[in-house]
Design a protein around this nucleic acid. Structure first.
Length: 354
DNA sequence: CCTTGTGTTGAG
DNA sequence: TCAACACAAGGG
């Protein structure tokens, strides 16, 4: 239903883009000037040449932008536009090319998805995507035209931090769904890793298996992101947000979570063998989550174990084999002392048993 | 009056 | 789909 919204903005007249009328209305092009028309594009009374300072050159040629979706304006400013269904959607005018380019990028992401070709390959912040997905194309376009996108996004993120607490207060034993207000938000497990001794040791870093790293946390290749890494936010069971630096270590050819990781290890009292789970909301927001589970194995008191697949109970087992990957919600070891007494049921959930 | 952004075209 | 170009509609 949001796809139709855009029409309201680009052209009030509904489905009428009759090609016939288009032909009829075409005004007589100024073919008077038989000068050279180079460049791509059309029309163009480009009177070739251009004396550096354009002192008195008749050339009205407007400087083109190197950015996609950005077009020059007569007054020196820049316009941003994107095409959709044979129609142009105007994204507004801006003082700087980069500003217009950025606006185009945002629109492109909203219109064409995360894989859209954009001007600036900045890593899509999870909050960014969530925001885009949560608004209609028309709303995004409106914000861009009014230059209020940044503010709206910021306010949205603040709001989300508070709501997340309630969301978790509603959590039940399932690790795949969480009820937030009236919206059922589902989350998918991206991957899990049984932490190694070094992951919880003095190296202060967690190695993310390359396979998973490249699939779920693609790092903008080539850009400075490779060297400096990026900051990624993860929300834990208590609604607490953990921000880790994520980067690639050439020396070891591995992807790692560095800054911030040691604090997580310490606060959660992670021990080698414990399993860390990375999840992501599949709903409108693309919020990332991190959770941990006590290492599976002997010595745990016998507890009811429910094997689940996509949130559906598959079968129950009473024992957990050594190499099973187990997700424990409300394990023995105490979770944060600052948590609000939130405790999952006594049962444990196996996510990827077998 | 000046700026916005639509009409429209030719190239890719 | 896209940008170039012209210019009418808009807003002050």
């Amino acid at each position: 239903m949001d796809s139709s919204c855009i029409e309201e903005i680009s052209s009030s007249t509904s489905e009428s883009f009759s090609t016939t009328t288009a032909k009829k209305l075409s005004p007589p092009p100024p073919l008077a000037a038989a000068f050279h028309l180079y460049r791509m594009g059309s029309g163009g009374s480009s009177v070739v040449l251009d004396s550096e300072n354009g002192v008195e050159t008749e050339s009205r040629k407007l400087p083109s932008s190197k950015y996609k979706g950005v077009v020059p304006q007569p007054n020196g400013r820049w316009g941003a536009q994107i095409y959709e269904k044979h129609q142009r959607v105007w994204l507004g005018t801006f003082n700087e090319q980069e500003e217009a380019a950025r606006s185009y990028d945002i629109a492109a992401l909203r219109f064409r998805g995360r894989d859209a070709v954009v001007n600036f390959k900045t890593l899509l912040d999870d909050g960014d995507l969530a925001f885009l997905e949560a608004h209609s194309k028309a709303e995004i376009v409106d914000m861009l035209r009014k230059h209020t996108y940044a503010d709206e996004l910021e306010q949205n993120n603040k709001r989300r931090l508070f709501l997340s607490v309630d969301a978790n207060g509603k959590r039940n034993g399932s690790s795949s769904t969480v009820l937030n207000d009236n919206v059922l938000k589902t989350r998918e497990v991206l991957f899990e890793k049984a932490v190694t001794p070094s992951d919880v040791g003095k190296l202060n870093r967690l190695v993310i298996p390359k396979q998973h790293a490249e699939k779920h946390f693609p790092l903008p290749s080539r850009s400075p992101s490779v060297t400096k890494g990026v900051l990624i936010n993860f929300e834990d069971v208590n609604g607490k947000v953990w921000r880790f630096r994520y980067s690639y270590w050439n020396s070891s050819q591995s992807y790692v979570l560095t800054k911030g990781w040691s604090r997580f290890v310490k606060e959660k009292h992670l021990r080698a063998g414990d399993v860390v789970t990375f999840e992501r909301s599949t709903g409108l927001d693309r919020q990332l989550y991190i959770d941990w589970k006590v290492r599976s194995g002997p010595r745990e008191n016998p507890v009811q174990v429910v094997v689940r697949l996509f949130g559906v109970d598959i079968f129950n087992v009473n024992t957990v084999k050594p190499n099973d990957v187990v997700a424990v919600c409300g394990g023995k070891r105490s979770r944060d002392a600052d948590m609000f007494g939130i405790r999952c049921s006594k049962k444990q959930t196996i996510i990827n048993a077998l």
